[in-house]
Amino acid sequence: MGRGSLVARILGGAAGLLLATGLYLGLVVVPPDAVQGDVQRIMYVHVPSIVTAYIAFFVVFCTSILYLWKRDLRLDAVAVSSAEIGVVFTGITLATGMIWGKPTWGVWWTWDARLTLTAILFTIYVGYLMLRAFAEEPLAAARYGAVLAILGFLDIPLNHLAVYWWRTLHQPSSILRPGGPSVASAMLLPLAMNFAGLILLFAYFLVERVRLERIRHRTAEVRLTRGRRG
């Protein structure tokens, strides 16, 4: 049980390699953005991490529906694991977005449409994790979690609509885009590297986090059978 499986180690290693390359390309090789200067380099982390977070929450959504259908706790293990990792990536997106905002807009926080949406996403899935922590028995936690995950995911497009209308009706929406509408081809490489790296890192975290959930299930089982005998 000490070290992860071979798959996990390969995933982790590949993620590390890709991220190191992406980091080097993004910080050293690629020239600074013509308009934004060096600050634009934050995008190489910010954009891939929000995409990874959305992938994580999509995984939560799918496994939650499947769990309610098949009632296999392994599906629920994937859902709760993916949600936890998604929250980490959403947190990184929020932090890097704020840090990018300070030199760009002069403030750490502004109710920019995308930042606002990310913050809403963050609160929904932190709520999901809290709900599961507060449920008294594991099967109830799994069912409640699955229901909340489905509601939360259906909420995303509505949130998008509402927040975009809200922001664009008051001021032209300032959208975080890597280097504006025209992404230079040199910038695509570090971006792609980090995309692949973070998605692999997500997969690695997921495999390991699901393993933790399996150990916990197993522990609960052993406790139960022992309780019955004793």
């Binding site: 709520g127 949130n159 509402a162 809200w166």
Partner: peptide, 15 residues
């Protein structure tokens, strides 16, 4: 827990 879960989910309604 009720407000903690309810308010984020109803942002579109509130807005």
């Amino acid at each position: 827990m009720l407000p903690l879960l309810l308010f984020p989910l109803t942002v579109p309604v509130i807005l």
